[in-house]
Design a protein around this nucleic acid. Structure first.
Lengths: 160, 160
DNA sequence: CAAGTTTAATTGCGTTTGCAACTGATTTCA
DNA sequence: TGAAATCAGTTGCAAACGCAATTAAACTTG
């Protein structure tokens, strides 16, 4: 962020307000999580830029680029280049969509599927590292509140 | 962020886990906040990239570039270019540091100071927009929890 | 069914980023 | 003191980004 991770809202007016700004807190913590993920993923030789794509594909192999991008809220051009990069890294391949000649299906290669199996461990590790200061009930609470803020339906394992 | 804001943790394993990943939620919401800030700041003709710098300078005018970068956790080269951009926009100026010929002090111009006064309103607006789905008690709770996660001491006005 | 519209995906190109190298000033300390 | 190390700041350059335009396919509708 710069790595626009660097970014924005680290701020507001005085010291006090700055520290309590929701946007400020979100940005700062998100950047830190991103940096930590980058480090952890480097250990297993995965580019953080491709990580998200790998995770989605491991769950839903053979979707179109459009769908992949949609699930990640990425613009099309970005998805297009991400898939290029996945292919360059030997992690995925494009195949024609039997249902439409203008869309493309993306599949993980064996190598890609193998890499993908290593990812949940990393996510789990980083998430619990960041949530460590919270009590168990607070962990549940913050995830619930974030879901509410994001308008994202809940469900699933809060440990991840 | 993509604007390495686009990035990372949108993820985990299955659909269920993905939706609950703390890192995933943080990244997605942080990116949305960033995009919204960008839009809102465009309305008052402020580049989101310079926004953070403006806020810090409005609070602590006349600091060195080094200090400015440190407060924002930005690398030196980035601060250097940000100050260039602030100057190009007529919002700030460099002055020699009387205490050291190798460092530089950064001051807001009148125009810069004037712009800075418009920023808290925008921050306020975007924050409350994102927190809108929450009840008042929940707003307090999420900010408190984020402080705890970030290891950032609390204090200040939760509306900002 | 043909013209117009929308859609998935890609790409050209100017801008921004990140790293490393560089300059000049200051400190260290043998 | 003066050679080496450190420090603030800048910059060259390759890579990555982001937008807008493009291509080719698939709807829509009169």
């Amino acid at each position: 962020m710069i790595e626009s991770r660097y970014l924005m809202a680290k701020i507001s007016a005085g010291q006090k307000q700055r520290q309590s700004s929701f946007g400020f807190l979100m940005q700062v913590i998100a950047r830190r999580i991103d940096a930590t993920m980058k480090e952890e993923l480097a250990k297993i030789d995965v580019d953080v830029k491709l990580f998200a794509n790998l995770m989605v594909l491991s769950d839903r192999d053979g979707i179109t680029q459009k769908e992949l991008g949609h699930l990640l809220e990425f613009p099309d051009y970005f998805t297009s280049r991400n898939v290029d990069a996945l292919i360059d890294a030997g992690l995925a391949e494009r195949r024609p969509d039997p249902n439409s000649r203008r869309s493309v299906l993306v599949f993980l290669t064996d190598k890609g599927r193998k890499k993908a199996t290593e990812l949940p461990r990393v996510i789990q590790k980083v998430n619990s590292q960041f949530l460590e200061p919270l009590k168990s009930s607070e962990k549940k609470a913050i995830i619930q509140l974030l879901h509410k803020v994001g308008g994202i339906p809940e469900g699933g394992d809060p440990n991840l």
